[in-house]
């Protein structure tokens, strides 16, 4: 079998919990009154693998550690312990317009987003036409993005992410917006991405979306992988458990 795209072994991530909220200079200067810090294990001894071409859904209650897991894979957090092996480049699909500056035009933002995802400026220039075409923004690319609708922001962000040639795509609830036509286009693009050997890890509360896209599902509970198996098997168990909040 080929080398896994994502290999995670005994991954642990702990956070400090302070009850006072924001840390302040005062809090740190009054060291003698400092209480013992509490630690929260957001991700607790997680191990799994994702093969190239596989699409894995991650489900679980709020606070089960799904987003932290994605953050660890995106190298936003440093693991407390454990190992992560990623073969190839990772592209996190940013939330609606994260990293977009409202006063800059669509094109200027495409450059910034493309470069932050690992392209060179030259590569962005080469792909600019394709990115704009896919996003269906048209002439609005020259307008500041503050004038964009949320659907346009999503389309532009998604379009950049799928044009960076990453081999691992991390998706966090990002596909919920956009019209039906564009959603179809996204799913087609994702299928193409998978067919070319790309791996996808996506977090969602939308069971229908998970059913459609995922080959396999990880069910997380209190920081641990509670169940890991074929989509239908895990999802039906998950739905029976009543952990999934009702969809609006």
């Amino acid at each position: 079998m080929s080398q896994p795209a994502i290999a995670v072994r005994n991954l642990v991530k702990e956070f400090d919990l302070t009850h006072s909220g924001y840390s302040s200079l005062k809090g740190n200067l009054l060291w003698w009154r400092k209480k013992r810090k509490e630690r929260l294990r957001a991700v607790d001894d997680v191990s799994f693998e994702v093969r190239p071409g596989e699409c894995v859904g991650v489900v679980g209650k709020n606070g089960a550690g799904k987003s932290t897991l994605l953050g660890l894979l995106a190298r936003v957090y440093k693991p407390t312990s454990g190992e992560i092996h990623l073969s190839g480049t990772v592209a996190p699909l940013l939330e609606l317009g994260a990293g977009f500056h409202p006063d800059l035009t669509g094109i200027e933002n495409v450059y910034f987003n493309g470069v932050i995802l690992g392209l060179t400026r030259k590569q962005v220039t080469e792909r600019l036409e394709k990115i704009i075409e896919f996003s269906e923004i048209g002439d609005y690319v020259d307008a500041p993005v503050r004038s964009y609708s949320s659907g346009m922001l999503l389309r532009l962000g998604f379009s950049v992410a799928v044009h960076v040639d990453a081999s691992i795509l991390l998706v966090d609830e990002a596909l919920a917006v956009g019209d039906i036509e564009f959603q179809k286009k996204c799913l087609a693009r994702i299928a193409e991405f998978q067919a070319n050997g790309g791996a996808i890890l996506f977090v969602s509360h939308d069971m229908d979306a998970v059913r459609r896209a995922a080959d396999r599902v990880l069910w997380m509970r209190a920081g641990k992988v509670y169940q890991d198996g074929p989509t239908e098997e895990v999802l039906s168990a998950y739905e029976r458990s009543g952990e999934n909040p009702p969809q609006d």
């Binding site: 953050g71 995106a74 936003v76 996190p92 939330e95 994260a98 990293g99 932050i116």
Partner: peptide, 9 residues
């Protein structure tokens, strides 16, 4: 910070 929480650089 919102961007830092999403992506590495």
């Amino acid at each position: 910070l919102p961007l830092l929480k999403k992506i590495y650089f």
